[in-house]
Design a protein around this nucleic acid. Structure first.
Length: 323
DNA sequence: CATCAGGGCCCTG
DNA sequence: CAGGGCCCTGAT
């Protein structure tokens, strides 16, 4: 699909805003629906059933932030649609997020202070919808990174679309409706294995109206958690990621999976992978040190680690992530 | 060549 | 609440 119409929006994130570390997360596995280079991020987005090509360009500074957002579409977009798109991006990218209390709180923290200084203006983002995150969470389960990449790409090719804009060609997600009537066998042919069942049942929950992302944003934490856990194939690890990335719960931290346990054991206790720190002990440390911003604080430490790795290999980390 | 565990989760006993 | 099974793939 060729996207010939272009509109431009100016976004003004609340200062401080760090463009690269907010719009690019080096720990996320690469996928064909986005591309990043310093100061620019391209991505596709399915908003109100219309496939879009987006290009974010950094036109400001950390203390005086500005983003030029170009929006490509197949047909012309009206102003009302663009306004709703702006609101949604504002939410997904946390553009209005106030980091000042967080920074004040950790200004003297021995481990965190240098990191919040280095990444001043970094905020979490998830560019996609809840449904899209659920799909990603499922392909992450019990798989190596490369396999997750392959599974998502196969799904893009089978159910998504390919968008041409700004000289880029990128995959775009599908809507839940697209999988209506698709059999488990057809999905398994994409080599996603037993996850086919989870994907079908999660997708069905959407077109059956069992959960509504926009309503859930206003629900309390427990209701969000139980709604997500009700979904077949979605357990505590996936829910932990979703509460943080999709529902912006900056203090929810109650689950640590084995691979993360190894990494945290090294980060916080300098322990080797064969002698990990028990999960309750890690959780107790996070509660003591990082409440009431447990997940946000760990996000900063985590992103710092992955940016370091992007510049030069971090030996102990290389052995813990299998690509 | 065969075996194994991986960026979990469900189901069973 | 512990433990087996699950798709597929690269590492060993």
């Amino acid at each position: 699909m060729i996207l010939a119409n272009q509109r431009t929006i100016r976004l003004h994130p609340r200062a401080p805003f760090h463009f690269d570390s907010s719009l690019h997360k080096p720990d996320h596995f690469p996928s064909s629906d986005n591309r990043w280079t310093s100061g620019i991020r391209w991505q596709t987005m399915l908003w109100k059933s219309i496939p879009l090509g987006l290009k974010f360009e950094d036109t400001g500074t950390v203390e005086e932030p500005a983003i030029q957002l170009s929006v490509w579409s197949e047909k012309a977009l009206d102003d009302g649609y663009l306004a709703s798109l702006r609101d949604e991006i504002e939410w997904r990218y946390n553009l209005s997020m106030d980091l000042s209390e967080f920074y004040d709180h950790f200004g003297d923290h021995p481990q965190l202070a240098p990191i919040v200084r280095r990444w001043r203006g970094l905020r979490p983002i998830h560019p996609g919808s809840l449904y899209e995150y659920l799909i990603i969470a499922i392909v992450l389960q019990n798989a190596t990174v490369r396999r997750s990449v392959n599974m998502l790409q196969a799904m893009f090719e089978a159910f998504g679309s390919s968008l041409e804009f700004d000289g880029q060609s990128m995959s775009c997600f599908w809507e839940p409706e697209k999988l209506r009537g698709v059999s488990e066998e057809a999905l398994r042919a994409l080599k996603i294995g037993y996850r086919a069942k989870s994907i079908l049942r999660v997708t069905q929950a959407f077109f059956d109206g069992e959960l509504d992302e926009f309503a859930l944003r206003y629900s309390d934490l427990d209701e969000q958690r139980t709604s997500l856990l009700r979904l077949y194939g979605i357990g505590p690890a996936s829910v932990g990621y979703i509460l943080f990335d999709v529902f912006h719960r900056w203090d929810d931290f109650r689950h640590i999976s084995p691979w993360e346990q190894k990494i945290y054991s090294k980060m916080f206790f300098d322990q080797d992978p064969d002698d990990v720190v028990p999960v309750p002990e890690l959780l107790a440390l996070f509660e003591k040190d990082f409440s009431p911003w447990r997940s946000l604080a760990v996000h900063y430490l985590w992103e710092d680690l992955w940016w370091r790795r992007a510049h030069e290999p971090v030996e102990w980390l290389e052995q813990l992530i299998r690509l």
